[in-house]
Every structure is written in C-alpha cells, then in structure tokens.
C-alpha cells in the first residue's frame, strides 16, 4: 500500500521552514507498517500502512466495523496488533509495558463516551495524570489544568463533577485532560458521535483551535465539514484496510475507489 505513504502537500501554516530540511526520522510522528490484527478468527486490520508527519491532521472515516477505531487504538496500544510494526515518536510498540506507558504519556486520546472519572471533579480529572504520572507538583498541575480548561472555555466548571456537565462540556473536559499531559499527538475516536446535535459545534471548534496550534491529530469522525476545514489528508477505510487516502479537496471531488464513491454518495446528500 505505497499510496498511503507520506503525501504531505499542505504543511501546517505555522510550521517552521527549517523543519522541512530535517531528516524524515524526526518529522515522522507515527509509522505503521504492515499492521495486521485479529479478534479471534476475525481479521480486523489487514496490512495497514500509514506514515504520519508531525503537525499533520488526518481524518479517518469509513463505515462502522471498518477498523478505523481499532486502528487508532493500536497507536496507544489499547488494542494489540499481532503483525507488523508501529512506531510512535521513535518508540516501537512491543509488549514492553514500560515502552507502552511511555508512548501513552505522550499520546492523548479522546473517546466517544468521554471516559471522564466520575468520582473526581473536573479539575481533579485534569490534574490526576500530571501529578501521578508526570510527578508534577499539585500547584503547578492545577495551574496547567486551569490553563487548558480556559482554552476549552470552561474554567468556571473546574469544581464540578463530570455528571453535572452537558455532553459537550464533558467532551471538552476530556480534551483538556488529555492536553494537560502535554501530548505530542492527539487521537480522537469519534469525539462527537455521542453528542446532542447542538453540542457538536463547541467540541469541533475546540478541535479546530487545536489543529491551528499545530497539534498532530488523528481523528476518526464522520464530520466531513471538519475534514474539509482542517485535514491534510482524509483516509477512507473499509474491511480493515485503507481503501483510499488523499487531500480533502481531491478526496471529496474526485474519489478514486468504487467503495469510496459509494460511501460518499451515502453520507453527502
């Protein structure tokens, strides 16, 4: 699947020009090579090859069961791959627990169902990992947390419990919680799928802001407007494989593969 290799035509607006001259090794954030995964006998991921550069924003879409969530969950080893190589920020994911935790510290993830910790306040949700994993002093962790809560525009909710917030607010807390670990890469697994329609925008706005700040992002979503607005590349998956990858302009106006055309005709009315 050579066609899915780096095709970064649109470097991030604020990328330093010097970055272009660096060796590819430093520019690569994630490398997946020949990745296969099975659930029992079921072949979920089939020969996935993907190279993600720093500051790239990739949107992954596809029908349900196509393996898109599984693929990004392999990147922080929430799912284990059985064949192939996954290298994240220069660290190869093996069964070495130390390496896995090392990767997870630097890769933020936002889930469909937020997965906030209900017994902790919003602020505590945000400071837990910095304090216990990064060994940050509590004071400093709280300052960092308030900074990111401000960025997702809900600093006034810091003392509340997740159960007292709306879905959109909870998802923004989840984004802030991930950012508090100062991640190099952010993974989004259908971040707006569980939200009321009125709350989708506030979460997408936060993600657009993050993209403009130059975060490396992999986003599994069906929000095609978001893909058009911020993605460098759109990847279409079906039956556990990458079927098509292209810039958003090309992807939406000239889809190549029959399956992509069918999918787009179903979701773009």
């Amino acid at each position: 699947m050579a066609d899915t290799m780096v095709t970064n035509n649109r470097p991030a607006a604020d990328a330093a020009p010097a970055a272009k001259m660096q060796t590819t090794k430093n520019k690569v954030a994630i490398e997946m090579a020949g990745v296969h995964k099975w659930y029992g006998d079921f072949h979920v991921l089939r020969d996935v090859n993907l190279m993600v550069e720093r500051r790239e924003r990739i949107v992954i879409s596809g029908p349900s069961g196509s393996g898109k969530s599984t693929m990004i969950r392999c990147i922080n080893h929430l799912e284990e791959h059985q064949q192939g190589r996954i290298v994240v920020d220069g660290v190869e994911l093996t069964n070495d627990l130390k390496k896995i935790d090392e990767v997870r510290r630097d890769v933020g993830m936002v889930f469909q169902h937020f997965n906030l910790f209900p017994h902790l306040t919003v602020l505590e949700n945000c400071t837990l990992a910095p304090i216990w994993v990064r060994k940050m002093p509590r004071k400093q962790a709280e300052e960092v947390a308030m900074h990111f809560l401000q960025r997702v525009k809900i600093p006034e909710q810091a003392k509340k419990y997740p159960g007292q917030l709306s879905g959109g607010q909870q998802q923004r807390v989840a984004i802030a919680r991930a950012l508090c670990m100062n991640p190099k890469i952010m993974l989004f697994d259908e971040p707006t799928s569980a939200l009321d329609p009125e709350m989708v925008k506030e979460v997408l706005d936060t993600m657009v802001q993050l993209a403009m700040d130059g975060m490396t992002m992999l986003v599994v979503t069906h929000e095609m407007g978001f893909a058009r607005q911020v993605a460098n590349r759109v990847i279409f998956m079906d039956a556990g494989q990458i079927v098509e990858a292209n810039t958003p302009e090309e992807f939406f106006s000239h889809p190549q593969h029959e399956r992509t055309k069918l999918f787009l005709s179903q979701i773009l009315h």
């Binding site: 997870r104 993830m109 997965n115 906030l116 017994h119 990992a129 994993v133």
Partner: peptide, 28 residues
C-alpha cells in the same frame, strides 16, 4: 471498560489506575 481505557490512555500504570480510579468507584 471506558474507565480503564481512559486511565490507560493517560499512561497511568496498573496499580495507580486501580487505586485512584477503579477501586474508589467499585468500592463505592
């Protein structure tokens, strides 16, 4: 499962995950 995944995705190890996130909720 999401609670475990939320914790693991932050790089929190097994014992801290259990002690800080899972057990407080489970015991409650």
């Amino acid at each position: 499962r999401g609670q475990y995944e939320g914790a693991m995705a932050l790089g929190i190890g097994y014992w801290k995950m259990m002690g800080l996130i899972i057990l407080p909720q489970a015991l409650k």
